[in-house]
Design a protein around this nucleic acid. Structure first.
Lengths: 205, 205
DNA sequence: ATGTATACGTACCGATCGGTAACACTGTCA
DNA sequence: TGACAGTGTTACCGATCGGTACGTATACAT
């Protein structure tokens, strides 16, 4: 067994690097660039340049740019559900409060200076072709979101839970888009208010 | 005055063509391709090929691809307001019925097989950079839509007209996006119903 | 010391990107 | 007849696209 210096191996000298992994740096950079500027707008050359790696390194970790984009979205998916579940867990057994908490945070995020909408939604717009790796991830995320919103609407006791769930989804998607279209002060800031109004109206039916 | 054959001038022999105008053919093809597949996804070579013209012809009528995209959107803008005003004019003095008529048609359109959302919205997603010619047209269209929706909400007598107007805009944008994400049977089909519910709730305040 | 596996970099590929130069042809109108 | 506007043709530009062939450097086990 080695004496020292290798449980976290060599801080990384000039080249011949250390386990922090090129793949992680690539994905981090890609995530940032893809989200802020769009997937089609960013070339692999720029990704590797900003990540401080070379192109073959990218293609050793990812079979293609399309699959790199899909990886970015799979990570986005995880973080999305983290945020969603955080709102859910903050109000156990109270779906209306869960929705309100989630949408309040969405509304706040849409008002931030560099807000660029939902990475999933944007990717689906960029890749309309069915079966594209990025779009597949995006569609799965949205299907699941719809399923959960409808279930929550039913749990609230709405007369027509499916319709209310879909209405909430429309408001959310509208907030994502409006956030990047109008910036701060845009319609997205009222998403939580409007959602609560819609819920109120749907429960009274 | 010519004897015949020129009120609609010469069916267009092999080359050296007739007035049908290259610019119009180019814009028609670009419009179709840009809408269905996205602006970034389509190259100028494919546009001129499908239009049966050559690249110099394109650049004689349009200073750049970006400006061609902007022209496409300006035409889209005109047709959008045609549809909008059609719904408005069908119900003079009754903004709630106007909104309902417009959204019923939007809901129907989102269920059509080749539906690809709103060209304006999609362009803004594709070009996040401020000042891009395509984005400028898109933003102007959305600003005006917001202004009119808010005015209509106020005219309905809503307690908070601005919030209701923004809520309607969120639902509309959500329908555009959901329409292309989910296809037929998706949440967009309920946009008119949800909008009416939201209006009802906002008037009672 | 040497083999092996892994990760890396240099250099390059053909294709396509948006855009242009230069010139020939046609129909219209004066 | 002659000027003009608009089109077509061919050929080309430099830049960038996504992707790869191939040699090199390191780490570890034998």
């Amino acid at each position: 067994m080695p004496t020292d210096k290798n449980i976290e191996p060599t801080i990384n000298n000039g080249h011949a690097s250390a386990p922090p992994k090129a793949a992680k740096k690539i994905l981090d950079v890609a995530r940032d660039l893809f989200y802020r500027q769009g997937i089609r707008a960013i070339g692999v050359d720029e990704i590797v340049r900003r990540a401080g790696v070379t192109k073959p390194s990218l293609y050793r970790s990812f079979p293609s740019k399309d699959e790199l984009a899909a990886s970015y979205l799979r990570q986005y998916d995880l973080e999305f559900w983290d945020r969603f579940d955080e709102a859910v867990n903050a109000h156990p057994g109270d779906p209306r409060a869960q929705i309100k908490a989630f949408l309040t945070r969405v509304g706040k995020r849409t008002q931030m200076p560099q807000y660029r909408g939902c990475g999933m939604t944007n990717a689906a717009v960029e890749y309309p072709e069915h079966g594209h790796p990025a779009r597949v991830v995006s569609e799965a995320n949205k299907q699941e979101l719809r399923r959960r919103l409808r279930a929550m609407a039913v749990a609230m006791g709405a007369g027509d839970g499916d319709t209310l769930g879909d209405g909430l989804l429309l408001l959310i998607e509208g907030a994502y888009i409006s956030g990047q279209l109008f910036g701060a002060g845009g319609p997205a800031q009222s998403v939580a208010t409007n959602a609560d109004l819609l819920i109120e109206a749907s429960l009274k039916k």
